[in-house]
Design a protein around this nucleic acid. Sequence first.
RNA 1: GCGCCGGUAGCUCAAUUGGCAGAGCAUUUGACUCUUAAUCAACAGGUUCCGGGUUCAAGUCCCGGCCGGCGCACCA
Length: 467
Amino acid sequence: MTVPYNFPHSAYAADLQRAWEHLAPGEESATNVAVAGRVMLLRTQGRLAFATMRDSSGEIQLFALADATERFEEFAHLHLGDWVGVRGEVVRTKRGELSVKVATWEVLASARHNFGDKWAGIADFDLRYRHREADLWANEKSRASLARRSEVVRALRERCWAAGFVEVETPILNPIPTGAAARPFVTHHNALDSEFFLRIAPELWLKRLVVGGFERVFELGRVFRNEGVSPRHNPEFTMLELYAAYWDYQDMMSFTEELVAGVALDVLGTTDLVYQERTVSLAAPWPRRTMAELASEAVGEDVSAHTPRERLVALLDERDVEVQPSWGAGRCLAELFEVSAEESLWSPTFVTEFPVEVSPLARRHRDDPALTERFESYLVGRELSNGFSELNDPEDQRERFEEQARLAASGDEEAMRIDEDYIRALEWGLPPTAGLGVGVDRLAMVLADESNIREVIAFPTLKPLRG
RNA sequence: GCGCCGGUAGCUCAAUUGGCAGAGCAUUUGACUCUUAAUCAACAGGUUCCGGGUUCAAGUCCCGGCCGGCGCACCA
């Protein structure tokens, strides 16, 4: 069957519902429109037929009559899921349903597969994720969650622009995977005959742009980490990273809480939300607690990066954490925090003063060289963002990289490598700068009230079918 | 990667202790001039995820594999 190449569309369902809200049952508007969408339901009644048509805005009924509709028999035999373009008058039926009384119409595309049970939709996760196009029609919630994600991304971008940040794009193919502790995906460039890694973070490139004079930059993009898949982890996920010259980590915490609360306002109109049946408020300011404080509260005794390593190891042993010989007191404290305190941080909280050992790119704390001016924000028991006063001393950065290299040599697959180009960039001078990374999918999950990250990713990573 | 659970018609789901594989919706055909998951009638629809095994008999029990959900680990 030949279908048209275009359809001169004049109205969306939701706009018609709004515009003709007061049209009385049985009344005709004397206004002709052209609408298009999918037939979701079809009720034939002899020489009448009613179809529920859905477009991107909502639904409207199509009212066909044998006496008034061209090719009525064909219309009455449409399949659920067929795309149609319809021209006719806006009317309200005797039973009160706003409708387009079909005069002329065309099939725009036919559906050769169905869109699931018309009441239960599609429940099978495999089918929903592998064929999201069907899921989006079958399950309203799927479309709503992805639409919500889009609104979150838009709000983040607009708020960054409004704060004077310049949006940039940095390489995804990297000769060295760096900027985070993670295992990379590896690929190969044929003409250059070189190994490349998909980026695990854009961090170092962005700071090089600050060295170059872009005082406020941000990038909203995909990063790739070769790690486990879970309801909260997808191998490729979206990160917002931004850097502001002349700010320190305290300034950046203030920006972060305003950004996240502002996005909630933009998207939901409120900072008070319900996530998985529990209330949570995103309103600023958020409490700022040091990692040592939170860990101390959780374990019931004072611990810090200065606590003797043996004591921290004992506390970790009690919690069945396998301590690696290469871990110093700082790493032990961070691990202790993660196992004892992290999950309890339901309302938004900044965890601050991370040990230098676990923060190879963060600037040393002005009051304590064992710590850094680093924070992570936690929300609904999960990490949402990470930021710090940036390490801008090239010699200290070299020492940190060398320490990472020692860890890598002792078998730590996630340790960073020495990036000479980056050290050279710092030698040209990075002003005092603070940086931030936000897990965009995680934020979208909270604002869409979804517990599985796949619900806010249109096409989540799946194992390819074989055999 | 490990553990637990799951996979039955196009979709949503049943199937007692191992005993003839079913329903609703969708599809097909028919009836019906105001329906709302329309209704009514009829037809059709199966490699019970795949491959082995036990048994007179396997959707059901056992072994292996594939895919998924959840948990753990890793991380954001």
